Structures are given as C-alpha cells and as structure tokens.
Computed example of a mutant assay.
Amino acid sequence: MNIENTLKNILSAMIHVDINDFYFDMPLLGEYPELDSMGIMLLLIEIESLINLDTNEITLSAETFATFGSLLQNLEAVSRFAQLSA
C-alpha cells in the first residue's frame, strides 16, 4: 500500500485537484471549502477505510491538516507505529 498515492486519490476526489498537482507544501486547511470540519471527518473516514489506519492514532490538529506534506508525514508515522506494534 502506498500511503502517498492513496492520500492523493482521496484528496483529489474531495477537493477536485488532479493527483499530479499535489506537492509536499501544498496548503490544505483553509484553502479548500471542502475541507471544513465535516470534510475533515469524511477525510478521516476515507483514510481509515482505504489506508487501514486507526484514525484515533492520528494527531488531530490544524498543523496536521495544514499541508499535504504534514498530513502525509502524520499518516506515515501512524503507519510505522502500527507496524511496530503488530
């Protein structure tokens, strides 16, 4: 499973940005009306479903969702932790 590509696909469907246009410092929170509080909840549901991560382990802060890179780094850290705990 490639977390980066899956995250790009999830976000692409939500905010209508081509997957090739994502970059590490791409702002998310506050840039797209789709990523309001309800949008973040839907994003977390998709992450849990498609990436198979426990969203209870994701740091839920504005900094986590500030950019594509910050979100990706958080998800990768949660994934590494889950693998070590298994």
Rank of each mutant, 00 (worst) to 15 (best):
L42A: 10
L29V: 05
T67G: 06
D54Y: 04
M1F: 14
F68S: 01
L44S: 06
Y23K: 07
L75N: 01
S12K: 08
E57G: 03
T59G: 01
L43P: 02
L42M: 13
D36G: 06
L53R: 02
A13G: 15
N52V: 03
S70D: 10
S85R: 13
D18T: 05
S61R: 07
E48D: 13
A86P: 11
I10F: 03
I15Q: 03
A86N: 11
D54I: 04
E31R: 15
R80L: 14
I40C: 05
T64F: 00
N56Y: 09
Q73G: 04
E57W: 02
I10R: 11
A66Y: 04
L50Y: 04
N20G: 14
N20A: 15
V78L: 02
G69Y: 05
M14Q: 13
S70K: 11
D18F: 06
A66D: 10
D54R: 10
H16N: 14
E31Y: 10
L44H: 05
T59N: 08
E46T: 06
L71P: 00
M41C: 09
L28R: 07
M14H: 01
E34H: 05
A86R: 14
E63H: 09
T59P: 00
T6D: 10
A77W: 09
M41H: 03
F65R: 09
T6I: 14
N20M: 13
I40S: 01
I10V: 08
A62C: 08
L42D: 11
I15S: 06
D36C: 07
S79A: 14
E63P: 00
F68K: 01
Y32V: 05
D25F: 05
L42I: 12
I58Q: 04
N2F: 10
A82Q: 15
L60F: 12
G69E: 09
L44N: 08
A82Y: 06
S85E: 15
D18E: 15
H16Q: 13
E46P: 00
N5W: 06
I3S: 10
Q73C: 09
M1G: 15
N56H: 15
H16G: 08
M26W: 10
L84V: 11
L7S: 02
E34M: 11
Y32T: 02
D25A: 14
L60R: 12
I58P: 00
D54G: 03
N2S: 15
E63C: 03
P33N: 13
I15M: 11
L7N: 05
H16P: 00
G39A: 11
E57P: 00
N5T: 14
S70Y: 01
L71I: 03
F81K: 15
I3V: 13
A86F: 11
K8L: 12
S37N: 10
M38P: 04
L60A: 11
L53E: 00
D36V: 07
E34L: 12
N56C: 08
I15A: 05
N5L: 15
E46Q: 13
Q73M: 05
E31I: 02
L42T: 09
M41S: 13
L44I: 01
L53T: 01
T55G: 00
D54N: 15
E76I: 05
F65H: 01
F81H: 12
S37E: 11
S61G: 08
Y23G: 02
I58M: 00
E46I: 03
K8R: 15
E63L: 07
T55A: 03
G30L: 08
E76M: 06
Q83H: 10
